[in-house]
Computed example of a mutant assay.
Amino acid sequence: MSLFWRIFALNALVLGAATALLLWAPVTVSVPILLTEAVILVGGLAVMLVANAALLRLGLAPLARLRRLMTTVDLLRPGQRLPVAGGGEVPEVIRTFNAMLERLEQERATSSARALLAQEAERRRIAQELHDEVGQSMTAILLGLKRSADEAPPRLREELHEVQEITRQSLDEVRRVVRRLRPGVLDDLGLVSAITSLTEDFATHTRMHVTRRFDTDLPELAPETELVLYRVAQESLTNAARHADAERVTVALRHVADRVVLTVTDDGRGIEAPREGAGMRGMRERALLIGGSLDITPAPRAGTSVQLTAPVSRKQL
């Protein structure tokens, strides 16, 4: 039955019941109307309205569920679907909406994959230019300063040493930026070594205590999976340093069945409800690219826990 005929039938049922009561009930209407008769008519009208409202609410309940889902759906949390039951127009609308959600999720995953791959390519290009151009130029400057300092008088030599030290610190900073843009150790030595290097560098620059817990039986992962795990760990550590006011961070890698689980837990201020900023949404998009899931929850005692669950085997993007 279509939605039109369903509503028509509900209203016809209410009006038919009211007409039957008027025909067979011993009720008359005087002119002018008596108070008791007015009370009976108003009461009957109220009953008709309540019955009509209840029946309409029952008939339109699937549309109300659809409206609630439409206001809360998030393409970064795939799999949200409305159950389809019955026949008529409303279930067909729900089926169409579910199909639209599936199509949007696929299109979002495809576009996100292209954007993130382009982002990684740009990171690689910038890192290469910093290493080849800026890094080599600053190295040449350091060598020139050293030669000048060796030949300069003592008073000028001290100033040249100070400039040399500033240049060396700047070169170290450029190299650190290059490692953050494109971790060469990830390509050369793998995920465990890359995250170890990341946490050591993080602890050095933030003065935070970092604990690492890695399973010894971690399986071999696809390059895309390793890169996503590394980027999520990097973003989680950055958030812990910038927003959580944490003192301790634990980074864990576990092998559970056919999945690898990355957990980054801090002892900071914690969260009541995670605000979906650009960093968190970026982590969710990366997780979707490898068929994984990301959970951001309060830590058991205090702070925040970021957990990424990724499948061991995954087709390349």
Score class of each variant (00 low, 15 high):
G88M: 05
L227T: 05
M138F: 15
E162R: 15
L10A: 09
I126N: 09
M70V: 04
A17F: 06
T28N: 10
R182G: 04
D132T: 14
A233R: 00
D150E: 15
L308I: 03
T216N: 11
P154V: 13
Q307C: 07
E276N: 08
R231I: 05
L317N: 11
S148H: 07
T265S: 04
L63H: 05
F214H: 06
R95L: 11
L308C: 08
G87F: 13
M208A: 14
S2N: 05
L116M: 10
W24P: 02
R242A: 06
S236Q: 00
R103C: 04
T263P: 04
M283E: 01
M100S: 13
A287S: 07
R176H: 15
A127H: 09
I290H: 02
L10V: 08
A17Y: 05
G292L: 00
Q119R: 11
A118D: 14
E220W: 12
V306P: 01
R168M: 00
V93Q: 14
P219G: 05
S137E: 15
L288H: 03
Q164C: 03
P26R: 08
R259E: 09
E133D: 14
R124I: 09
L66S: 04
A310W: 03
A127W: 06
T28H: 14
M280W: 12
L49I: 14
S111T: 11
R108L: 09
T72H: 07
M48H: 10
L229N: 01
G16S: 08
A61N: 11
V178K: 01
G43W: 01
A53E: 02
R95E: 11
M208G: 06
L171G: 02
V264R: 02
